[in-house]
Nucleic acid binder design. Structure first.
Length: 266
DNA sequence: TACATATGATCAT
DNA sequence: TGATCCTATGTAA
C-alpha cells in the first residue's frame, strides 16, 4: 500500500482532520503505551511527510511523533461513529468526532528535534516536495549499481516504492539492471519530472495510475479498470501493453522487479 | 485453514 | 545475502 504518495495523502487528510486540535492518545495494543501517555492531551500543530516518513508536531510537547508504515502499516480514519480499534492497533488519536487508528507500522516512536533533523538529513530529495533533484543525480551518477536498485534507496530519492520504480523505468525504456551512472542528466531530469507528475496524481487519487492516454484501449472512457492501471508491476507473464511480449520479473537486491524485456533495454 | 506474498527497512554476517 | 519485524489479503488446499 504505502509509497510516498500514500504517505503524503495521509498527511494531508489527517492535517485536515486533526490539525489544530487537542487529541487523546492511547495504545490498545500496549506497545506504544508510554508514548501515547506522553501525547495524551497534546495540541496537534502539524503533520509533515518526507518520503515515506511522517512527523507529527505538537504545540505543547518537545517531541514529535514519528511514523513509518513499512510494508503493512495502515491508518483508519473516522468522522462520526468509529469502528472500535482492533486489539493490534498501535495508536489511537482522537478528538471529538474524529478518530485515527494506526496498525502495523514499522516505526511509531517519539523523536526529539535533533533526531528528527538527523533522520531527514539522511533522506534524499522527495519528488512530492518539489525538492531540488541535483543531489539525487550526483549520487546516482557515481554508481555502477543497477538503476532499479538505486531508485529504491531512500537516501538517493525519498518516496519511491516498488510500483513507481517499475513503472517509471518502463516508461523510459530503461532496463532495471542498467548501471545507474549510464543515465545522462537530461534523461534523469525528464525521469524526475515524470515521477513527480505520477506521484502528484497518485497522491490526489489515492491510487497509482501510470497508464498513458496513448495506451488506453478505450480512449473515450473516463474509467480505468483496476487491472489496467499499470504497465509492468505485478504483471509477470502478461503481455506488454505496447509490444505484447510477456512481462518478466526477478529478484533484485531482495525486491521483485518487473520489466518488459523488449521495451526496456539494458 | 494454511500458505504465500506484499506498494518497506534494518541489522547481522 | 539472509534473517527478522510487523499485518492483511488473496489463493490453494
Amino acid at each position: 500500500m504505502p509509497e510516498g504518495h500514500t504517505i503524503h495523502r495521509y498527511a494531508r487528510l489527517q492535517r485536515k482532520l486533526l490539525g489544530g486540535r487537542r487529541v487523546a492518545a492511547s495504545s490498545p495494543q500496549g506497545r506504544f503505551a508510554a508514548g501515547a501517555a506522553v501525547l495524551d492531551g497534546a495540541l496537534l500543530h502539524d503533520i509533515d511527510a518526507h518520503g515515506k516518513h511522517m512527523f507529527y508536531r505538537f504545540a505543547d510537547r518537545d517531541v514529535s511523533l514519528h511514523v513509518h508504515l513499512g510494508l503493512y502499516g495502515r491508518f483508519r480514519a473516522y468522522e462520526g461513529d468509529a469502528l472500535p480499534p482492533t486489539p493490534l492497533t498501535r495508536l489511537v488519536l482522537s478528538s471529538d468526532g474524529v478518530e485515527l487508528q494506526l496498525s502495523g507500522p514499522t516505526i511509531c516512536e517519539l523523536m526529539d528535534p535533533a533526531a528528527e533533523a538527523a533522520l531527514r538529513d539522511r533522506l534524499g530529495p522527495d519528488p512530492l516536495h518539489d525538492d531540488d533533484p541535483d543531489e539525487a543525480f550526483v549520487a546516482l551518477a557515481r554508481r555502477r549499481t543497477p538503476i532499479g536498485q538505486i531508485l529504491l534507496d531512500q537516501r538517493v530519492i525519498a518516496g519511491i516504492g516498488n510500483v513507481y520504480r517499475a513503472e517509471v523505468l518502463f516508461l523510459f525504456g530503461i532496463h532495471p539492471n542498467r548501471p545507474a551512472h549510464a543515465l545522462d542528466r537530461a534523461t534523469f531530469d525528464d525521469l524526475w519530472r515524470l515521477l513527480r507528475e505520477l506521484m502528484i496524481a497518485g497522491e490526489r487519487r489515492g491510487r497509482i495510475i501510470t497508464l498513458q492516454p496513448a495506451d488506453r484501449t478505450l480512449p473515450m472512457s473516463q474509467l480505468i479498470a483496476e487491472e489496467d492501471r499499470l504497465y509492468v508491476y505485478n504483471r509477470t507473464g502478461l503481455p506488454c501493453r505496447r509490444c505484447g511480449t510477456p512481462i518478466i520479473s526477478w529478484d533484485l537486491a531482495g525486491r521483485t522487479v518487473f520489466a518488459c524485456p523488449r521495451c526496456q533495454s539494458a
